[in-house]
Computed example of a mutant assay.
Amino acid sequence: MSYVNYTIIATCAMGIEAILAKEVRALGYECEVENGRVTFRGDARDVAQANMWLRTADRIRLEIGKFRAKTFDELFEGTLQLPWEQFISVDAAFPVSGKSVQSTLFSVPDCQGIVKKAIVERLKRKYRQVTWFEEQGAPVPIEIALRKDMAVLTIDSSGTGLHKRGYRLEQGEAPIKETLAAALVQLTNWFPDKPFVDLFCGSGTIAIEAALIGQNIAPGFNRSFACELWKMFPKSVWEEVRQEADDSADYGKELQIFGSDLDPKMIEIAKVNALEAGLYDAIQWKQMRASDFKTTGENGVIVCNPPWGERMGKREVESLYSELGETLKPYETWSVYVLTGDEQFEEHYGKKATKKRKLFNGFIRTDFYQYWGKRPKK
């Protein structure tokens, strides 16, 4: 077991930092929140836990060091002083990516080259018999991020982005990331004993993320991570974390989750994805128009990402939103949450939202319109 403490950075989409911080604290860590990231301290086991359980994080990075760098010499020397041999084995691959914002060193390719050169020099000094690194082993992805002349060097423990849960074999034309879908669910007032509905389910992502939450299934349970192959991380760490995740899941919990879509092809895709996620029996799917929705249930939650923008014509979108508002008007105890980039949504829907939250779907700015249902009678 490794008890070395690291500065761990969980990155996320803009607008959901508070949700991610809540997840981090629920795992038992104190954290700091900044734009697009949440930072906390932990060892190898904590890195594994974060990768396994954080539903709204994009990646889990380890901060190796940070320092001010306004010249290439400062960048080289600062990088050279960091203990890279603790993270990079003699056979490891260590690609370097980069970004620069409001910094004197604005050429990202040049910064990447300087960092790579400094790391190689450091490793040569530590692995004295080695003059050339084949980089055929496990990858240790490195990033140099410059902001206002402050250089931050990190390694990526996740590998493939954490939104890649492993269950989405197929998708539609305008899918939302699994991490954003999980954030949408967590922004609602839904509890697993209440009905949950997505009337524009597409490939089923929102409903599947709700089911994962409802049965307390770790989002990373069915995938692998870059740091699993790192020699500095004992295999026993991952064995323990996976076993604990399996033990924590309530696979038999009955859920009232329903997904529908007008396109029969998307319903079939959603079913395949749910099967891959091990949730085939946890979600009901139906091909139908959203305007055909009817229920006798009470105090449920509707979360959806209906078509907007180029996915449909302007008049079609306006008509769709208007129909949705009329369809859901009788269900006063239900809470409705709609993600869209259409700034006139409230006007077409026919009702002003209780609350509106700005979110980003990739680089696309959207709003999450929230309509809270009447409280249930005691």
Rank of each mutant, 00 (worst) to 15 (best):
V4A: 13
V4S: 14
V4Y: 10
A10P: 14
C12K: 09
M14F: 10
G15V: 03
E17D: 07
R25D: 01
A26G: 12
E32M: 11
V38H: 03
T39F: 02
D43S: 13
A44E: 03
V47G: 02
M52V: 05
R55M: 05
T56W: 02
A57C: 07
G65L: 07
R68F: 08
L75C: 06
T79E: 00
T79W: 07
L80M: 06
Q81K: 15
P83R: 06
V96R: 12
S97Y: 12
S100N: 06
T104V: 13
V108W: 04
V108M: 05
V108L: 12
K117Q: 11
V120G: 09
V120T: 10
R122W: 06
R125F: 07
T131N: 13
W132S: 15
W132N: 11
E134S: 15
E135S: 04
P139D: 08
R147E: 10
K148R: 12
M150C: 11
I155K: 14
D156G: 06
S157E: 02
R165N: 10
E170S: 14
E173I: 09
E173M: 07
E173V: 09
A174I: 04
A174L: 01
T179R: 06
V185N: 01
Q186V: 01
Q186C: 04
F191M: 13
P192W: 00
P192Q: 00
D193Y: 12
L199N: 02
C201V: 00
T205Q: 07
T205E: 02
I206T: 05
A207R: 03
I208R: 12
I208T: 12
L212G: 07
L212W: 06
G214M: 00
G214V: 03
P219E: 03
G220D: 11
F221Q: 14
R223M: 08
R223S: 10
C227G: 08
C227K: 02
L229F: 12
M232K: 13
F233D: 07
P234K: 05
P234R: 04
K235Q: 11
S236N: 15
V241I: 01
V241C: 02
E244N: 09
A245D: 00
D246K: 15
A249S: 09
A249M: 06
A249Q: 13
A249G: 06
D250K: 14
Y251E: 14
E254W: 03
D263R: 09
K265L: 13
I267W: 03
E268M: 13
V272W: 01
N273I: 00
A274I: 00
Y280W: 07
A282V: 01
I283M: 03
I283V: 02
K286T: 06
S291K: 13
D292Y: 04
F293Y: 13
T296R: 12
T296M: 08
N305Y: 05
N305R: 01
S319I: 03
L320V: 00
E323Y: 04
L324A: 08
G325I: 03
G325H: 01
K329T: 08
K329G: 09
P330F: 00
P330G: 11
T340W: 00
T340N: 06
D342R: 12
H348N: 08
K351Q: 15
K352F: 07
K358H: 15
L359F: 01
L359E: 08
I364S: 05
T366E: 05
T366Q: 14
D367C: 08
Y371V: 00
G373T: 02
K378H: 05
